[in-house]
Structure formats: structure tokens, C-alpha cells
Design a protein around this nucleic acid. Structure first.
Lengths: 341, 341
DNA sequence: CATATGCGGGACATTTAATGTCCCTTAGAC
DNA sequence: GTCTAAGGGACATTAAATGTCCCGCATATG
């Protein structure tokens, strides 16, 4: 198959470009349907008339339908969208990009999802889907899944296909701390993921930015103690990678503290820890949950990141643990290659 | 692989068209190199400027080279041309066309070569190549190959790769009769084919249109007798299909005789026999060689035809023998489908 | 029920790419 | 030397893609 793609790209160099453009439109209709030309054009960032021209082709192929409510992807179109992702993956030769990154970052397994999150926010959904499928392959009966918060993790849970192949799955948040947005809190993500997998969940209600005394008190609560023990038994850990500055702001850390952390060279955040470019811990948020030592002992670890601003964070965290899977979008993947070069 | 092609054709319906156009240009350069734009444009039947636009792409892809002598296909381009034939075959879904014909004509095996001979004379070379490869798979040590004359058969011999995998191959003309063009006489074809296969040959020197007395005399010649015996032992028979009227003219049969044959409904000619639409013999040219009974007893039979005017001939001859392989170009294949419909 | 919003589609100007046409210089062939 | 056919440049012409605007219509909202 690879050979055929090479052949096609040789004789028809424009292939990738056209296909990606058309796929992009189809996918964006799918994620926004029913949607009008103008709305779509603004979203994708191409001319309205271009949409019309391309959509005409897609309609003739019975991939989209047009009605007064807006454009909709047909059943056939949905199947195509799904298959097309993998195809574009091959076409863009992302396999070699993956291996290159595995080598550069010295990480066991890297998955790159076609498209750039910075150009198309819906790439997040694709990354979520890919991640969810990756996690599913790791799962066994009676496993404990630990997951963190963030919009990326929310999508991972959201895109997980609803089916309970495995019995007695337990989903727990990997670490305390809430964040502003309820939807993407670790607790909420854990609940959603558990529902999708037909498993159970336990939650951890610990606010951000506690002082030492409050923390000591909270740790004494039986439910918290139970969860601390469960966290040490996590079989599959799924965590989101964060840009240090952005995460510090979001966690409502005081400004002078943020300044201090950044001066220490923090570029990455993950499960409440802050790291510099070399992957050295420079600060830890005061909450309960997965420790850095725990992290290194977990067998199945999946890190997910989306967007070019996460490039440095990915580089930093990749030196923490060799034996994990990192999933990211094509945009940040290429950005990383640029940086390390 | 099939699924991927379907996918591509769905999302990019123009694919086949563009690819075929470009392939056509590349192939025609290959068969005529070094060649100029104008010459090529006349040959293919498209605008000179179109050639230039397309060739620019091909040159950027390092598939053709341009120098003051004309355009040439690079080494890489040659490989591409070769692979592309099969690819276009899949792309056009000629497999299903083949099965359809096998069913309609009730023939064991049919091979369709992409492209129409009536639009591009160089398709004959492709048909020749496909035929030669097909024959090669049938061959075993010590086999006797019988072959007829005609421009198609000449190409079959010409396109046979020069290598002697099998030992002690003997090539003989299947039937007497010379025709106007020396190059494509059965004798000459047999010699060329034998050379390509590293085998030996024996020839049959019998003119066209003999009267009975002359024929009786000739049959007494020891060499002719020997060949008649060898013909009965043919392992692999390769023959060209002819349009009855055209062949009759070419064999210099008297006009009144031609008229008679055609009035009997003759549409097809093969190894000196003339058949009506139903495959019934209506006339036999007076010469020595393979008889119709011999034909039906040969184990491996390959019939080759090129061009839409052979459509009826193919239909007629397909009812002669179920167990054979027919090779033709796409143009006549589709013509046949039209006729039987 | 009236209003506002966003939809598809038509129409037309504009831009861009593809194509048609012609001529020039040059390198082999005879 | 002459002639032919080559590639390449230049420019007009055509076709396609795109930008821009407006219209009538359905639906949601108040």
C-alpha cells in the first residue's frame, strides 16, 4: 500500500493538498452540522465560495446533503470521514514522522494525528478519539484508570466509544485540584470516562492552592486516604500535558509565585508538577494524588497534548519516562522537530 | 487496497481522469523518445500547450528529462510507467470488467489492458507485453509453442522479456500462409519469439491461396510433414484474432471469394479459419497447419485481439473453446459489453 | 404573530490558471 | 550549407476558481 501511495504522489503531486483540503471541509461540516457556508468558511478560514465549489463536489458524491437548515454529512459521508483520517495519515507519511519523534525524544511510542490544532480546533476531537482507542487497547479486566483534567482529557473521555468490553473497570482522578471549568475537571472527566466504559468511579474533592495545614487535615479524611491508596495501584494513567505558564494562571496560583516558578525555568506542567526543559521538577502544586515517583512506576502511561504551544512541554516531559505513549497533533509534532533541529 | 481506491475516488472523483491523462503522456513519451511537444501532441490528439503544462509537472517530479533532442523518460520514470499500468488497471476497476466478460463470453480467463487501441496505437505494445507475461507463466521445459502471424503477434514476441528460464523450448508457426508484411509473418514471429526465449524454431514455408493440387504436392515435402506432426503436439498456442473482412483482403483472396465468405456471415478469422457470429466455421483457407480439431485439443490457448473492430470476432471465437485465455484492450472490451447488451 | 437570524442559491465581477497561437534560436540530419 | 524539428519565450484567449453581494425563505425567538 505504501508503494502505491508513493506512486500516486509521484505522478500526481497535488494529491495530498487537494485531498486534505476536501477532507478538512468534510470533517468540519461533520463536527458542526447542520452548518451554513459562511459559518464554516469563518471557522476553517477559507473563502465562502471555495466552500461552495468543494461542497458541490461532495454533494455529487453523496457525501453531504444540503437543506435549508444547513449542510449535513450523509451516512456514507460519516464512514468516509472516519476512514479518511487513517488514509491522510498514510498519505502524509506521518508514520515516519512518528518514528522520527520516537527517536528524537527517546520515547517508546508516539502517535501523531493529522492536522494542526492551531489551525483547526476540531483536531482536538481527533486527538481525543485516537487517544481513547489507544487506551482501550491497554485495558484489561479489573483495571484502575487514572486520569487528569483539562479540555484534552475531557475530549478523550468524550470520544471513547460507549461499550463495556472489560468488566470491573475503575476510573479515578489522578490528582486533586479543580480548575475553573467544571466540564474539564479531573473528577468530571473520570465520571464521563467511567460511564463510557461501563465501569465505576471514585472522586477526589480537594481544592487548588492549599496551605500545608489544610492539606494535612484533608489527607486524614477516609475517602481521601482510600483514593491515595488506589492511586498507587493505577494500571493505566492518562494525563494531559500543559504549558507551564498557562497552567499556572489557570490554577489561580498567586502572581509572585508564578513569576518564581517561571524564573526557575518551568515550561511544562503535568499532574500538578512543573518541569524545566530538561524534565527536572521545579515546583509541585500542593495537593494530594499521584506523585512523581508513583508516575514512574505506572505500567501503562499515555500522555496527550494538542497545539504548538505544548511543544516545549512535550520535550520536557519526554525525558521523565521512556516507557510511555505520547499522542499529539501533527502541528505540534512538526514544531518539535523544528525546535530540536 | 481496493477499499482505499474506492475511498479516493469518492473524495476525489477527478482522480482517474487526471491520472490517466498524465499516464498517457508519460507512456507516449516513453514509446517515442526522444520526442518533441508537437509530434507528441499530434500523436495523442491533445493540444501542444497541454503537453507542456503536464510535462512541466512530470519534469519537476524527475520523471522526464528535457533536452534539445526532445523529451526523454528518466530511469525513475520508466519504473513508474511500468507500475502505473497495473495501478490504472485497479483504478478503473478493470478486474470487474474482466469478470463480467468472462461471464458474458463464458471464457475461463480474460485479461483487459487499460486504454483503447483505437485512440492510442501504443496500447498494442501493452497488450503484447501482457500477453507475453501470460504466456511465460504457462510455459514448461521442452514445450512446443505454436504462434500465428499478424501485427499483434509480432508485438507479443517483441515484448517478451529476453531470458531463458525454460530449457528446450521449440517455437513453430501454427499455420502456413504468409501475408504481405514480412515482419509480422508467422514464421518471422516464431523466430523472434524463439530468440527471446532462448529456444529453437522450425519454419513452415507455404504460400497463401493454393489450389488443391499444389497443396497436395507441398504436403509431401518432408519438412512440411515434420511440422504437421509437431503442430499436433503444440503445448501452448498463441493466436491473433482477426476481423473477417480485413483478414480476407490481407490474405489476397479473390474478390468474388471474399464476397461469398462474407455472405455466409463471416465476422471472425483465426489461424486461417473464418467464423460467423455464432462461432460456426464458414470457410477455411487452403493451407497446411493447425486444424480446428487440433485447436480444440491444445491445452494452453491464448487469443489476443486489439481494437474495437475485433469485437465481433472475439464474441464469435469465444464460443469455440471455453478453456482458453483471451487478452484484449479496454476499448474493445467495453465495445463487447455494449454489443451483447 | 412579527421580527431577526442564518440558511441556500443566484448573479456578476475579479482573479488566477490553463490553453491556444506564433515566433525565435539552436542542434542534429542529410 | 540547408532543412527539419527540437525547446523555450511571449502574449492573447479561454476557462475555471474565487470574491462579493443580494434575494427569498425557513426557523427560532420574543
Amino acid at each position: 500500500m505504501d508503494e502505491i501511495l508513493e506512486l500516486q504522489k509521484k505522478i500526481l503531486p497535488e494529491l495530498t493538498e487537494i485531498l486534505e483540503k476536501r477532507y478538512n471541509i468534510l470533517r468540519n461540516i461533520y463536527y458542526n452540522q447542520p452548518v451554513g457556508r459562511r459559518t464554516l468558511a469563518n471557522k476553517i478560514g477559507i473563502g465562502e465560495r471555495v466552500i461552495r465549489t468543494e461542497v458541490n463536489v461532495l454533494r455529487e458524491q453523496n457525501l453531504v446533503e444540503i437543506n435549508p437548515l444547513g449542510m449535513t454529512v450523509t451516512d456514507e459521508g460519516q464512514i468516509i470521514v472516519d476512514k479518511l483520517k487513517d488514509f491522510i495519515h498514510s498519505l502524509k507519511d506521518l508514520k515516519s514522522l512518528e518514528s522520527k519523534l520516537e527517536k528524537v525524544l527517546n520515547i517508546k511510542k508516539i502517535l501523531v494525528v493529522p492536522g494542526s490544532f492551531d489551525e483547526d480546533e476540531y483536531i482536538l476531537k481527533d486527538v481525543g478519539k485516537t487517544s481513547s482507542l489507544c487506551i482501550k487497547t491497554m485495558l484489561k479486566d479489573n483495571n484502575i484508570i487514572g486520569i487528569t483534567g483539562g479540555s484534552t482529557m475531557a475530549q478523550v473521555a468524550n470520544e471513547m466509544p460507549k461499550q463495556d468490553i472489560h468488566s470491573n473497570i475503575l476510573v479515578i482522578p489522578a490528582r486533586g485540584g479543580l480548575g475553573k471549568n467544571f466540564e474539564s475537571q479531573a473528577n468530571n472527566v473520570a465520571v464521563n470516562l467511567a460511564k463510557k466504559l461501563g465501569g465505576s468511579y471514585k472522586l477526589l474533592h480537594v481544592p487548588d492552592s492549599l496551605d500545608k495545614e489544610a492539606l494535612d487535615t484533608i489527607i486524614q479524611i477516609p475517602e481521601v486516604k482510600e483514593l491515595k491508596n488506589l492511586i498507587k495501584k493505577i494500571d493505566v494513567l492518562v494525563f494531559g500535558l500543559g504549558n507551564a505558564e498557562e497552567m499556572a494562571n489557570r490554577r489561580m496560583i498567586p502572581d509572585d509565585k508564578i513569576k518564581e516558578i517561571l524564573e526557575k525555568g518551568a515550561v511544562a506542567e503535568a499532574f500538578g508538577y512543573y518541569f524545566n526543559t530538561k524534565g527536572e521538577q521545579v515546583w509541585e502544586s500542593s495537593t494530594v494524588g499521584l506523585s512523581l515517583d508513583d508516575f514512574k512506576k505506572v505500567k501503562n502511561v499515555v500522555g496527550v497534548a494538542c497545539g504548538k504551544k505544548k511543544a516545549e512541554a512535550i520535550i520536557a516531559i519526554s525525558s521523565l519516562k521512556k516507557d510511555m505513549t505520547l499522542i499529539m497533533d501533527e502541528g505540534v509534532a512538526r514544531e518539535i522537530i523544528e525546535i530540536v533541529k
